[in-house]
Design a protein around this nucleic acid. Sequence first.
DNA 1: CTTCAAATCCAACAAAAGTCACAGTAACCC
DNA 2: GGGTTACTGTGACTTTTGTTGGATTTGAAG
Lengths: 225, 225
Amino acid sequence: MTDWHKIPYFANINASALSQLQSHAHCRQFQAGATIFAEGDKCAGFFIVVEGLVRIFRMNGEGRLHTLSLLRPLASFNEVAAVDGHSNPFNAVAVTQTAVWVISHAHLISLLASDRALLQNYVQQLAHQNRDYLERLEDMTFRSIPARLAKLFLHETTYAEHITEPPTKLTQEEIAAILGTTREVVGRALRGLLNAGLLRKKGREIVIADRDGLQHLAETHFSQI
Amino acid sequence: MTDWHKIPYFANINASALSQLQSHAHCRQFQAGATIFAEGDKCAGFFIVVEGLVRIFRMNGEGRLHTLSLLRPLASFNEVAAVDGHSNPFNAVAVTQTAVWVISHAHLISLLASDRALLQNYVQQLAHQNRDYLERLEDMTFRSIPARLAKLFLHETTYAEHITEPPTKLTQEEIAAILGTTREVVGRALRGLLNAGLLRKKGREIVIADRDGLQHLAETHFSQI
DNA sequence: CTTCAAATCCAACAAAAGTCACAGTAACCC
DNA sequence: GGGTTACTGTGACTTTTGTTGGATTTGAAG
């Protein structure tokens, strides 16, 4: 059985509120590749991943993908729509066979109204998410792609909590979607970091060779490799 | 006297809670150009603009500026740090002579603990801000500068609530800081929109000539002007 | 071991954005 | 009105990112 206390939103909630919560949650299964919900659709509720891997992403008109997070158990998602009841702000698909708990907007609202600790957790978690989005916004405005890639490898702040795979295990295509660019560009940047001796190939795995160098690159704008 | 009910965070709060709130708020004045607080500094608290104009921004190592918002009365800011107590996520400066109310982190927390309506407002407002940041993140990942400029002129969703000046009154330098680019690039994009007949000069003011055209441009990635 | 699909590498090119330098123009203050 | 300052216009150039197309490698399945 899932230990709900490990989910930050439900930490330190008293037992009766928690059992209320659990009694309102529905379990749903998704095949690999199945859409859990789509951006713009009517609020799908509050989700908790209990099994599998979920991709949270947005897509533009031309079909380019921006992966916001890759989530494993026990991450939660769609917290914003769940609480304001408006449409989902992004898409969610099951990457592998996946199981989730879902709590509807209506139930969440009534639970929030009856349990103050839950409400307080919610405020703190939303504030936290806010900081993360702001950080990523600054990454996009100020950082070059090699810098963003270096940051991803350092598994720094922002990415660390959302992307539960080490970059080594991601394909270049996936990295590109996370950084908001294309596979080719990631390939080049990767070559650059290897040539510069910041990363090293160990067999076919990529490992960090010079953490300080990466750190420095992650903080400057220019590529200069 | 400021009507605090007009501030979304404090809407529908009962009178006694509100007077509590007000009794904990301090008023502070700032000269034009003065720093209200800096990014990374210890949490400065919850702010409400009651007079003047405040710029919220981040800056990178090379001194480039990203203006997140330009706020007039009765906007609030630094809501995230105020509630989580961590460092300020951005800088705030007074553009003109400015007056603000400030509520400290400690007081805000105690008020949130005692008034449920306030706490519920806070959740909703943070959720709203979350959506805004996500929208801007997507602007940065998917949209070209002409598209972002078109969106700014349409005063769409995101920008509308944060930038309280119509773009017409902003200098190209300011627009550049909002869009996360440089003055020359804004100048060129502006020329492009004028040439394409989407905007028109009326004396030295710029007005929208073709709203649908702007809308269309704002939704595509490529410049193609 | 072979085969096939997926992932990668790479080079050449196109487009967008950033930089630099300097000229023109408006606005503002004595 | 003259001079100063801030803002705007614009061309030439560089850098970065995106695109295309084909060659090569890899890994899993038969």
